[in-house]
């Protein structure tokens, strides 16, 4: 499998504080890569560097074959990103949001129309096409935000705690969407606090205090730490954290 993300000692300092310290890992194409860690461990910082939103302090990384220092705009053309903060426009309708984001990614109008119909069908939001996004329940909004983040068929999508505050049923549906995207060959890079979700990933990395402390498949991690589930693995690693959660 070809790699789509490669990092080598990728580091971000804010003054004296090292938010992400010498991260080195690879993500393969089509993989669902879980990026775990306690609050304040440096997950979001690492993700923002890979998305071209934040310049690294040192180290190297390529995303979809492009350099994170010099080719951020090329990276942006090839990735999707769903931030922790809800990022659709509340005062636009469902289909207007799809149209807008597809438009600024440079899709043609006929392509946008086809894509909108397809997305609405997948999400079963046909009736809500003309509903303002602020009137949708949170779970629907999250699913819509995910679909919008991959509207331009990127090769990688970064999801920053996409299921925060969502009920278990909707979370399950959300992961169905993630699997569907992965089946199409989209690489999924996802952070989460739900350990059941960690089990869904092909491989998982666990960050503690800005450093990657463990990286393997959930099965191997459980074996290595002699744990029954990912929750125990996470607890084993994260309880030694010195950094205060934010």
């Amino acid at each position: 499998m070809p790699t789509v993300i490669t990092t080598d000692k990728l580091t971000k300092r804010f003054g004296a504080f090292i938010a992400a310290n010498e991260l080195t890992f690879e993500v393969e194409k089509g993989e669902i890569f879980g990026f775990l860690g306690a609050n304040g461990a440096g997950k979001t910082t690492a993700m923002r560097m890979l998305c071209g939103l934040l310049s690294p302090s040192s180290g190297a990384a390529t995303v979809a074959g492009f350099d994170v220092y010099t080719q951020t705009e090329k990276i942006k053309q090839n990735i999707g990103y769903m931030s922790q903060k809800f990022s659709l426009y509340d005062d636009l309708t469902v289909s207007e949001n799809i149209r807008f984001y597809a438009g600024i990614y440079g899709m043609s109008i006929p392509a946008i129309k086809t894509k909108t119909t397809q997305l609405l069908e997948e999400l079963q939001l046909q009736k809500e096409a003309k509903t303002l996004v602020k009137e949708l329940p949170l779970g629907w909004k999250q699913k819509l935000a995910f679909s919008v983040s991959i509207v331009h068929d990127p090769s990688i999508v970064f999801l920053d705690e996409p299921t925060g505050g969502v009920d278990p049923v909707t979370r399950r549906q959300f992961w169905d969407l993630i699997y569907a995207a992965a089946d199409k060959g989209v690489t999924i890079f996802v952070t989460t606090h739900y350990m059941d979700e960690a089990e869904y990933c092909n491989r998982v990395s666990i960050m503690v205090d800005g450093v990657i402390s463990a990286l393997d498949s959930p099965a191997k991690l459980k074996e290595q730490y002699n744990a029954h589930n990912m929750e125990d693995v996470f607890y084993e690693l994260a309880r030694n954290a010195k950094r205060k959660a934010d």
Binding site: K74, S83, S87, L88, Y101, I104
Partner: peptide, 13 residues
């Protein structure tokens, strides 16, 4: 404030 600008910044606009 609403965070939508980040979504714009992550596009190649």
């Amino acid at each position: 404030e609403s965070g939508t600008i980040e979504q714009i910044n992550v596009t190649p606009i």
